[in-house]
């Protein structure tokens, strides 16, 4: 505390008051802005970023919202989010696959147009784009799952037979037909949205979702035994005896019931 006789200057008091007031105001305004910034990261699932877009968090630090990618998109796929209309961060580019999907131009004009690198210029092959991952979300309404031959999503896929394949399965209902199940392979899927756009149902049974929703992830320590074994060319543990697998049915080594599964399998020590 100041001693008697050395009064504090009024300028000092004024300065401290003003500084406190200004910083208080800035904390309030800054908090509001930070809340908006947090809000801006919530990209709706149906909004897809252009090819090469950085992960959403980095994208919002890089995209200056100039719209040059939109201008250079020859198919008018991309649009800029409008304030209060689209739930995407205002002014940032996105597309909705069901409306206009990405046509996957070879020269990727949107990436070339981006001045800041929010669309990563390292993307030089459109097949490496990861805009999202197609997921056959509704197996109950998908015509192929009903045993019909729609196949449209498979046919329109720009990476046909790699990103979407048709896997045959037995049709239990009819008992003597095959079902051709459209199966997405995420490694090859670019998320262009052609499949979602073309799905013949009123609401698409196959949808492109952002990878965060579409994919699970394997734990780091998981190893697939069969792959490891093949890579090594033998059992992974030395001296392990590889016993024959006991399978039901003829032609196996099931000695207890040659030719098939024993219906009354007698469990040792269990009274029956």
């Amino acid at each position: 505390m100041p001693s008697e006789g050395t009064p504090l200057s009024p300028q000092r008091r004024r300065f401290l008051q003003d500084a406190a007031r200004a910083s208080g105001g800035c904390v309030v305004a800054g908090s509001l802005l930070a809340w908006l910034a947090r809000d801006a990261r919530a990209l709706p699932a149906e909004a897809l970023r252009p090819p090469g877009a950085l992960p959403e968090k980095e994208f919002l630090s890089a995209c200056i919202r100039c719209g040059l990618c939109v201008r250079d998109c020859p198919y008018d796929t991309l649009k800029l989010a409008e304030l209060g209309v689209d739930a995407v961060a205002t002014g940032t580019p996105y597309f909705t696959a069901r409306d206009v999907p990405c046509e996957m131009c070879d020269d990727i004009p949107c990436v070339a147009a981006c001045p800041t690198g929010a669309l990563d210029p390292a993307l030089d092959n459109i097949d490496d784009a990861k805009m999202g991952v197609a997921v056959l979300v509704d197996q109950e309404n998908c015509l192929n799952f009903l045993g019909l031959r729609c196949d449209v999503c498979y046919r329109v896929c720009p990476v046909i037979d790699e990103a979407i394949t048709l896997e045959t399965a037995h049709n239990e209902r009819s008992g003597h037909h095959a079902m051709f199940i459209p199966t997405v392979h995420a490694d090859h899927c670019t998320g262009c949205g052609m499949c979602e756009k073309s799905c013949v149902l009123p609401e698409a049974a196959i949808k492109v979702l952002p990878a965060r929703l579409a994919r699970g992830s394997s734990a780091d320590h998981y190893r697939k035994g069969w792959e490891e074994k093949e890579a090594k060319g033998g059992p992974l543990v030395e001296g392990l005896i590889d016993l024959p697998d006991r399978l039901p049915g003829p032609g196996t080594d099931n000695l207890a019931a040659p030719g098939g599964f024993a219906p009354t399998y007698d469990l040792l020590g269990v009274g029956q």
Partner: peptide, 20 residues
């Protein structure tokens, strides 16, 4: 002060803050 706030919020949130 607003300018300083905008720059600080950009740094802390990793979003170009004023463009919001």
């Amino acid at each position: 002060w607003v300018l300083a706030t905008v720059l600080i919020v950009s740094g802390t949130t990793g979003v170009i803050a004023w463009e919001l």
